[in-house]
Design a protein around this nucleic acid. Sequence first.
DNA 1: CACTAGATGCTCT
DNA 2: GAGCATCTAGTGA
Length: 199
Amino acid sequence: MLDADLLAGPAEQVAPLLLGMVLRHGEVAVELTEVEAYAGPRDPASHAFRGPTPRNDVMFGPPGHLYLYFSYGMHWAANVVCGPDGTAGGCLLRSGQVVDGADLARGRRHGAPERDLARGPGRLTQALGLAREHRGLDLLADGVVRLEPGPVRAGEIEVLTGPRVGVSSAADVPWRFWVAGSRYVSAYKRSPRAPAPER
DNA sequence: CACTAGATGCTCT
DNA sequence: GAGCATCTAGTGA
């Protein structure tokens, strides 16, 4: 069982710790290979930057809960809430490797190739079967959806960082974290609305 | 393989 | 009504 204190720090510090952990929903489990940090009031790219709304209120609650949002008309994306209770913050789960329940995941993903089962935020939630009814669940409690320690010990994963995908503000802040050399990492794409890259 | 265009509907202003 | 923390299918090589 994971300790909530582990997730109570700033999102950009929690994010690399999530790599290698496993998110499980029933029989399907995904080992996380790529995440992004969103630091609430300190981060113009965060949904919580302008204060609480009905959509983002979960992010203002205690760490370790599941913030889900609906994106681009077709996809759900999952975040682990971080930071202390009362302060908004979260880590977007961008990609992972399906390590259990692959047959069920493949069915939900309409027969996608193994590498693409959970590569991308929308694909990851689809493979796990997460949607609006899972909003706000406590991932550290003993429920059907939970976050578990991974098979690899903390500190044994080589982590690379870079700018976040698809954000139009703070587009150069390197708060995307992924497992070095992993095939289960999504492609970087800069938002067409973002200003020209810094150099 | 790399790259592009368009679909799609919720959320907040 | 504008703006998305995206995906897929299509093209061309």
